[in-house]
Design a protein around this nucleic acid. Structure first.
Length: 591
DNA sequence: GTGAAGGGCCAC
DNA sequence: AAACGTGGCCCTTCAC
């Protein structure tokens, strides 16, 4: 594919080019940068393509004039990027959005992301790859050469090959989008695509904002947990060694406490009836009878804390900003949930000792807002279950109300144990729990668990039939959808009972978990629109929770905005079940 | 040495 | 024989 392009490297030509490009409806958009981290490198090229016209802008000459964030010579470029029309088509637009936000001080307006579109169309098929080479091959049958992607973009003079590569990538976006739109429309996926595209810039900005972590506090906790681990390790070594023959001159050999095999052998030597797996909940029942098991669990807990939530988290603190800048994958799961890595700030332990370290810097406050029982509300909305509707509309204690139903007693007579049972049940049904699992979870016999499930579903008739239908639909149609129309396709062997059962569970769970993700994504967009420019900034999201950092003076009003945005987002998906958001304003992530 | 797989465990 | 959903990270084990 030969692409004709214009290379722009001075203000006059830039103004002219932007003026012409600005009249287009759609523009392929791409940037070439000297590094992957916007806090480290700089933007070298910005490319636009209208198909027949492709422009490559070299920013290096503009650096001579002054800071790219400020010089008026770049205003035409900023305006073009910020405009809602033309829509910018980019592959993984989050990347480009971050760079232009940080280096050109402009928020990208109007986004079509070919990376996200490809994922939406793939509908959860895990084999499919979504990098530009694979996507253009799959949808256009074009092989693109990405070898220049990692070339030196900081060179004084770029090679013809580099510039041609840059032009090609942008030019590719126009035909690629056409194919993708065709597929999106065919599969009725335009609504979810828009939902996703609207999220790109807020997420890009959130990643730039970063999440503040108090290093001192974190180290304090790390010290405590390291000490705990050491002590538990020493004691555990001693206890395990008791099972080894005392014949050895040098005493018992050291056991690698992180090795499941070695630990299992040692436990067997001590006469512990080790279950098939040594997962915590399998070992837990043995810990009363065997102190060594209790010690093992204590060691594991401390080891996990020290390894996953220790020094390694601090290594992700950005040397420039001093904050964490995790990587959020917008479609991290087939359900549409985000995933997060480097570090994963969606799996920080709930205990206050950890959460308190994620605090508000001097003069700032943290607003923590989370949807209350959003998945159960979605289940109530979809099933129309009378008990769910009554409980949510009446504002009653939801789990207590379920307990009253299940145990056939007055709500006021529900004991804490009964409520806890009902809570487990309520959450269990969202995942399609079975009697066996429920029995183990709540410490009753399988027979008792079966009875409780039967009673639960007989008092929640609409819920029962919705879950059945959702399961049957997953098998019959081989797919399921969320509220935004997001599609997940299921592949399973019709003759395999285990796969049938698991597909049914996916089919029941996906609309619930996925609609929850839809709602959060919509909330993020609405939230972004009301806080941007106020000094408040989104710093983390955890599935049904949003964390905003803002100057203390505007904390209360910002909290109200956050709450309103979240509720308004939910109202677009839930028509009969009300939604509530718990909001707190404080100095840290913990209460 | 490197990478994949598996077990275990953190979050929602 | 049965199996509650979605992720990421750490460690060991094992193959290359």
């Amino acid at each position: 594919m030969e692409v004709f392009f214009e290379l722009v490297s001075e203000p006059g030509a830039l103004r002219k080019a932007c003026e012409k490009l600005g009249q287009e409806e759609l523009l392929g958009f791409d940037t070439e940068t000297t590094e992957l981290d916007p806090f480290e490198g700089s933007i070298r090229l910005v490319q636009f393509s209208a198909g027949d016209q492709t422009v490559v802008i070299d920013l290096k000459p503009f650096e001579e004039i002054g800071s790219l964030r400020e010089i008026p010579e770049l205003q035409p470029l900023r305006d073009l990027i910020a405009a809602r029309k033309p829509v910018k088509i980019a592959h993984n637009a989050k990347f480009d959005a971050k760079w232009v936000a940080h280096h050109l001080d402009v928020e990208m307006g109007g986004t079509f992301d070919t990376f996200l579109a490809s994922q939406i169309i793939a509908a959860g098929e895990r084999e499919r790859r979504h990098n530009l080479a694979d996507v253009s091959n799959f949808f256009l049958g074009i092989d693109v050469d990405k070898s220049e992607q990692v070339s030196d973009w900081s060179a004084e003079e770029l090679t013809q090959s580099q510039i041609a590569y840059a032009a090609k990538d942008a030019a590719l976006m126009i035909p690629l989008r056409e194919k993708l739109v065709e597929r999106l429309q065919n599969d009725d996926l335009m609504r979810v695509a828009k939902l996703e595209f609207d999220c790109v810039v807020p997420i890009a900005i959130m990643e730039l904002n970063g999440f503040y972590l108090d290093q001192e506090k974190w180290r304090e906790q790390l010290e405590v947990v390291t000490k705990e681990q050491k002590e538990a390790a020493a004691e555990l070594q001693g206890m395990l060694a008791a099972g080894v023959s005392q014949g050895s001159l040098f005493g018992a050999p050291e056991i690698n406490l992180d090795s499941r095999n070695q630990v299992t052998d040692a436990l067997i030597n001590l006469g512990v009836p080790v279950p098939e797996t040594t997962r915590g909940w399998e070992l837990e029942p043995l810990s009363d009878k065997y102190p060594v098991v209790r010690k093992l669990l204590a060691y594991r807990s401390a080891a996990k804390a020290a390894s996953s939530f220790g020094e390694n988290i601090l290594e992700f603190l950005n040397p420039v900003t001093g904050r964490l800048h995790p990587d959020f994958r917008q479609i991290g799961a087939p359900t549409g949930r985000f995933s997060c890595s480097k570090p994963n700030v969606q799996q920080i332990p709930h205990q206050e000792v950890y959460r308190r370290c994620f605090s508000a810097p001097e003069g700032m406050k943290l607003i923590v807002a989370d949807y209350s029982q959003i998945e159960l509300r979605i289940l109530g909305e979809y099933s129309g279950d009378q008990n769910f509707l009554k409980a949510f509309n009446g504002g009653a204690d939801f789990h207590a109300a379920a307990a009253a139903q299940v145990f056939n007693i007055e709500p006021s007579a529900v004991t804490p144990e009964q409520r806890s049972f009902a809570k487990r049940l309520n959450f269990g049904v969202v995942y399609g729990i079975g009697a066996q699992r429920f029995a183990r979870l709540s410490g009753v016999s399988t027979g008792q668990a079966e009875n409780m499930l039967r009673r639960y579903f007989s008092t929640h008739r609409e819920l029962d039939s919705w879950l059945r239908e959702a399961g049957d639909k997953a098998i019959g149609e081989g797919m399921a959808r969320t509220g935004s129309g997001r599609l997940a396709k299921f592949r399973f062997d019709q003759d395999d009972r285990v796969q049938i059962a698991s597909t049914k569970r996916y089919g029941r769970n996906l609309p619930i978990q996925g609609t929850s993700a839809d709602i959060l994504k919509r909330a993020i967009r609405l939230l972004h629109d009301v806080i941007s420019g106020t000094g408040a900034m989104l710093v983390n999201i955890v599935h049904d929770e949003v964390i905003v950092e803002c100057p203390a003076e505007i904390a209360d009003e910002t909290a109200k905005k956050v709450e309103a945005a979240m509720i308004n987002a939910a109202k677009e998906y839930l028509k009969v079940v009300p939604v509530t958001v718990d909001v707190s304003v404080g100095d840290a992530w913990s209460k």
